[in-house]
Amino acid sequence: MSTPSGGMRPGLATAFAVVGFGALAICGLGVLSLVTGEDVVAVRGLGPIPGAVGFGAALIATATTLAISLRAPRPSYATAALTGVVALLSYLAGLIVSAVVVGVDAARALAAAGGFAVSWFGLLLVVAAAIAGWFAVALVRTRATPPRWTWERDEDE
Rank of each mutant, 00 (worst) to 15 (best):
R71Y: 02
A42I: 03
I49K: 04
G56Y: 08
G56N: 08
A42S: 14
I60Y: 06
L95T: 12
I60P: 00
G56M: 07
L82S: 13
G94L: 08
I68H: 02
S69M: 07
E38A: 14
R71T: 05
G47L: 06
L95R: 04
V41A: 04
L89G: 12
G51L: 07
G54Q: 06
G47N: 06
A93K: 04
L82V: 15
Y77L: 14
L59H: 05
G56R: 08
A72R: 15
V43R: 00
I49P: 00
G94F: 03
L88H: 06
A93Q: 05
E38K: 14
G84Q: 07
R44P: 11
F55I: 08
G94W: 02
A61H: 06
L88K: 08
A61M: 13
G84L: 08
T65R: 00
I49Y: 06
P50I: 04
L46E: 06
G56K: 07
T79H: 03
E38V: 01
L59A: 14
Y91E: 12
L82F: 10
I68C: 01
L92Q: 05
G84D: 09
P50T: 06
A58M: 12
T64S: 13
G45H: 10
A57S: 12
V86F: 05
V53H: 00
L82R: 15
